[in-house]
Design a protein around this nucleic acid. Structure first.
Lengths: 224, 224, 224, 224
DNA sequence: TATGAATGAGAGTTCATTCAT
DNA sequence: TATGAATGAACTCTCATTCAT
C-alpha cells in the first residue's frame, strides 16, 4: 500500500476516486518493475534509477510510493508471501485435512507457484537473503508463517487419521524441513538448471520424498 | 591459495621456506578475519578496510593475497565446501555404505559442522546467496558436489542392500531435497532462533524425517 | 501580503469581501506555521511539505500565497521588522526624546519583544543568517532601519540635551553596537541558556551598559 | 587534525615522517579551500565536490580527512576560535590587566582579526549560524570561551583598580554585550558595507563605547 | 612485499517547484 | 482557488580498487 493510506472509495469525490485508483495502479506498476529487475539483475545491482526507468516514472515518484529501496523489497516480500500461502493453502483446503491435500499443496508449489511466478521465487529464495536486519526479520516472519501453515496442516492430517508424531519437536522440525525441500528444489531446478519442463516430475519426486518422511515419523507406517 | 603458487618446501632455501610459511599464515589470517566479518556484519556491510583492520594488515596486503572482494568469499566458499564435504564424507565412510552411515553423516552435519562452524554456515547459506554471477556459479558447483555426494551415498547404500529407487530422477531430486533440509534447518535454528542447545534433538528429528523419506522411495519399506 | 494585491473592502461585493478575508487569514496561517517551524526545526530542515501540513493546506496553496520558500522567510522578516521597530519605537516615544525613553526602548526589547516573540527572535537572529543573497539583502535593510532608528533616537536625545557626540562616525557606530548588544544578549540567554526568567535583570544590566557607553561618548559625562 | 591521529615524529621512519607531513599539509589545504568557499559562496551553496575541486583533490580525499561536511566547518570553527582568542589574548596581556590592555584587545579585534581574516569572520559570524545542533553546540562553546575571556579580563582590570561591578549578573552580561558589539560591528562594516578602510576609526568608536559602558558600571565613574 | 593515501564512479535520498485536474 | 502527485537536479557519502613509495 502507498505511503498515503487509502480511504474507502465511497467517501471520496469522483475525481478523488480516480486519483486513488491511479495511485494504486502506479504503486503496482513500480512494484512489478522492481520485482522483475530484482529477479533478473539482482537486488544490489538494481539502482533506484533503473527501477524508475523501468516503471516509466521519475526517481522521485518511486520515493513517493516507497520509503526507500528496502521498503520496495519488503512490500514485495509481503505480497509474495500472500500469494505463496494462498496457493498452498487453497490446494490443501480443497481436499480437506488429508494426506492427499498435503500432497496437492506440494504439487501446487511446484506446478503453480514456481511455474507461474519464477520471479517471486527469485525474490523470496535468493534476492531477499542476507540483506538488512529489517529485511531479514521480515523474511523470518514470512517463513515462520509458512512453517506454521505446514505444521498446522500436518497436525490436522494426523488428528484426522488418529495418528501422532514421534518425539517432541518433530512437527515443527518437519515443517521446517519441508520448507527447506521446497526452497532448494525450486532454487536448483529453476535458477541453476533450467528444468522448467521437468518440474512436474521433479515436484512429484520431492513430494513423494516428503510424504514418505512424514509417514515414517507417524506412529504407524502406512504410506499412502 | 595466494596468487603466487606455492612451491614444494624441499626445493626452497631456509629463508624462502620461512617466507612461504609466513605467506600462507597471513593468507589464512585474512581469510579467517573475512569469514568472521562476513558472518557477523554481512558481506555487503563489510568493507575491505574493515577486513584489513581485522587482519591487522594494510588494504594493499589484502589485495596482494586476493584478487578482489569477490575472490575472498569465493576462496572462503571453497574452503567451507572442503570442510563440509569432509565432515559428512568421513562420517559416512566410517560405517560403510549403510543406512547407518547415512544417518551418521546427517548427525555430523548438525552436531559437528553447524555447532563448530556457525560462521561457515552463515557464509554458505546466507552471505554468498544472490551476489555476483561468478559467486553464484561457485555456489552452484559446490552444492552440486554435495548433492552428488549425497546421491552417490544413497545409491551405494541401495546397491549394498539390493534396493532400487522408484521413478527416474529420484536419486538426484532426493539428494537436492536432503541438502534443502540441512540448509533450512540450520538456517532456522542457527540464525533465526538460537537453538544451539537443542540442535542435537533437532538434528535427530530432521535426519529421522530424511531416513523415512528415503525408505519410502525405496522399493521395500523397511525403516531402520 | 498575498501575491494578489488587496483591494479596499468597500469596493467589493459581500462575497468578494468574505473571500478576501479568508485569503488574508490563510496567508497569516501559513506564515505563522512557517515561523514556528523555522524557529523550532530550522529554516533548512523545514520542507515546504511540512509547512503545508502544519498550515493544513496543500503544497500548491503555499505556492499560491508565496512565490517560493525564500519569499516565506522574507515576508516573515518584514513582519518581524515591523513588530520590532514598533515595540521599540512606541516605548521610546512614550517618554519623549530623553535618555529615559532610550532606556525604556531597551527594556521593551528584552521584556516585551524577546519574551513575547522568542520565535521572531529565532528567525531574525538565527534562521535568516547567511542564506541567499536576496534574503541577506533584506536582513541588511532591516538592520539598517533599526540602526537608523537607534541613531535618530540617540541624536534627538542629544539635541534635546544640547549635547554632541565625540568623533565623526560615532552616532552610527554606536547604533550598530547597541543593536549588536541586543542581538547577542538575546541569542545567548534565549537560545543558549534558558534564562527567560532572569531576562529582566539581564536586560537591565545590558541597558545599563549601553547607557553608560552612550554617556561616555557625549561631551558631558552625566549618567542619568 | 586528520581522522587518523598523528604520531610523534621521532617514532616514525623517514618515509612515514614524510607521509605524515604531507597529510598535515593536505589537511590544511582542504580546510583553507573550504574556508574560502564557505566565506564567499556560503556553507549551503558549497558542495563537497566544489570543495574537492578547489583543494585539487578528489571527493574521496576530502572524506578521508574529514568525517563529513559538518566536520569541515566544525574544524574550521575550532581553528578560528583559536586564532581569535590568541589575537585578543595577546593584545590584552601585553599591557597587563589594565583598561589600556582591554582597549588594545578591542583594537586588535578590528584592526588585526577582522582585517587579516575576513573569511574567518564570515565563518564564525555568518556561515556557522543556525545549522545543525552539533555545530550550534560548538558555536555556543566557542562564544562561551570568548565571553569567559572577556569576563576574566574585565574582572582582573577591576581588581587591579580596586573597583567593583554594580549589580549581580553584570560581569557576564557585559562580556556578552561586548562580544555582541564586536560581532555586529564586524558584520556591518565587513559584509554589508565595505568599510575596510575606515575600520580603524570604526573600531576606535566601538571600543570607546565599550570603555564608556564598562566605566559606567564600575562604582567610580572615571573614564580614562 | 607491504603500505595507506587517493581515486571517482555510483548509489540512495531529498525537496523546491510545477502543473494537470 | 486548491490540490497533491510528479519531477529531476543536486547533494552527501561509500567503498572497491589502484599505485607511488
Amino acid at each position: 500500500m502507498p505511503a498515503k493510506k487509502l480511504i474507502k472509495e465511497e467517501n471520496l469525490s469522483k475525481s478523488a476516486q480516480r486519483r486513488q485508483r491511479e495511485r494504486e495502479h502506479r504503486y503496482q506498476t513500480i512494484l512489478t518493475a522492481a520485482e522483475k529487475l530484482f529477479a533478473t539483475e539482482g537486488y544490489h545491482k538494481s539502482s533506484m534509477e533503473q527501477i524508475a526507468n523501468a516503471s516509466e516514472v521519475s526517481v522521485g515518484a518511486v520515493y513517493f510510493y516507497f520509503k526507500n529501496k528496502e521498503d520496495l523489497i519488503i512490500q514485495l516480500l509481503d505480497e509474495i508471501g500472500y500469494v505463496l500461502r494462498s496457493t498452498l493453502g487453497n490446494a490443501f483446503k480443497k481436499h480437506g485435512p488429508t494426506m492427499e491435500g498435503f500432497k496437492q499443496a506440494g504439487y501446487a508449489f511446484f506446478e503453480d507457484f514456481c511455474v507461474n511466478y519464477p520471479e517471486k521465487c527469485a525474490i523470496i529464495f535468493r534476492e531477499s537473503v542476507g540483506n538488512s536486519p529489517e529485511l531479514e526479520g521480515r523474511r523470518k516472519k514470512l517463513f515462520e508463517k509458512c512453517t506454521g501453515d505446514v505444521r498446522s496442516a500436518l497436525l490436522s492430517v494426523c488428528e484426522n487419521q488418529g495418528l501422532k508424531f514421534k518425539g517432541q519437536y518433530s512437527a515443527e522440525v518437519i515443517a521446517v524441513s519441508i520448507m527447506g525441500i521446497y526452497e532448494r528444489v525450486a532454487y536448483q531446478y529453476l535458477f541453476w538448471q533450467d528444468a522448467s519442463n521437468d518440474i512436474r516430475l521433479i515436484g512429484r519426486d520431492a513430494v513423494g520424498f516428503i510424504t514418505g518422511g512424514v509417514n515414517y515419523l507417524l506412529n504407524e507406517i502406512s504410506c499412502t
